[in-house]
Design a binder for these strands. Sequence first.
DNA 1: TAGATTGTTAATCGATTAACAATC
DNA 2: TAGATTGTTAATCGATTAACAATC
Lengths: 214, 214
Amino acid sequence: MTENKEMQSAISMQALRRLPQYYSYLKLLEAEGIETISAPAIAKRMNLNDVQVRKDLASVSLSGGKPKKGSNVHDLIRDISHFLGYDNVREAVLVGAGHLGSALLSYKGFEEYGMKVVAAFDNDPDCVGMKHFRDMIYPMQKLSNLCTRLNIRIGIITVPKHAAQEVCDALILGGVQAIWNFAPTHLLVPKGIHVQNENMAVSLAVLSQYLIDV
Amino acid sequence: MTENKEMQSAISMQALRRLPQYYSYLKLLEAEGIETISAPAIAKRMNLNDVQVRKDLASVSLSGGKPKKGSNVHDLIRDISHFLGYDNVREAVLVGAGHLGSALLSYKGFEEYGMKVVAAFDNDPDCVGMKHFRDMIYPMQKLSNLCTRLNIRIGIITVPKHAAQEVCDALILGGVQAIWNFAPTHLLVPKGIHVQNENMAVSLAVLSQYLIDV
DNA sequence: TAGATTGTTAATCGATTAACAATC
DNA sequence: TAGATTGTTAATCGATTAACAATC
């Protein structure tokens, strides 16, 4: 998945991937009006080890817990939000307004996670997205230029695989630094650009493994 | 991501996730007419260690490579395909024919990866999928029953999060054993059922980490 | 108090990488 | 032959888990 390993931070990749899941569970608790939660309780619900939970939370939270009570749910939510940049919404562009692109455009949850798609690009006037998101869809030619002008750092690629590399190049030309690639292809990028592949085949491989010999 | 850790197999989860990526690169080589490839060459292209590549491939391939030449591309493709079950297409159902569901329905690549979506379910006659995939969309009431009758083992959930648990229960009632969950919520399932969460927030967290302080 | 929970240090586990002899 | 590559064994690295004293 991760192409580039040069990220520096106090937290491990594994822990980073668990944080959004703690966040989601904590939001659930918050909605239920629960004010404190212990590490063992979180661990049990999420099928994790309690020491791991404590370490993960300690790495992003300043407050810490109280013996016999646990940690404050609001504080944890605030600290994870902050660490993951949820309180600092970044603008992104999306290229390819077919079914998948439209699905992402209509997903309103991104903003809660610190990302907002401000423009989409597609050349096909008949593409699915054109019907639902007409006002934010621009022709592909404007891609690089608009990215530069709006100072966009995140590009989302949802075009068919044969067009992905070209789109990727245009995004980089426009100054994009992180690419979320949904096309099932390997993109070649210069050093310093992060590509994150959302690869269905990888997920499917893991899923299928559970069914072998059943 | 992975809820259930009881999978038994000779291969590690990490290696399993790399296999589809080797496969994809090998298919590219095959298309270019290249007949043999060395582990160091694969490693270089995919930013991996060459020993790791050799071990990964050895764990699924019978043939092995030849000093100074490497391995046969066709043989590797065949062995990975076989290991990942690509030559043994499994039938799946999809629930929720909105944008995301339609995107998955229109993705023809799944069959190459050993999965075929044979039916989709949605109650809304105005859903996006209804326009494009009318003939394979059934009302939700038929879900459990059809799964049982067709002996379906894989269910894909692409409904909004408030409906996900209910859909999940219906799938399990119908005998589904593996669930690919695209709804941003934690599903509660009995022991023995595998849930694989495709969580955009997790991916986004990793992606954003690369942009912090930029 | 007793006992649940905390945070930390040490042990374990598993995956990656280095080293090396064998092969074509 | 020389050198690239193989497969395997040993060392390293990193993450998880166990053990434990401190706290409310």
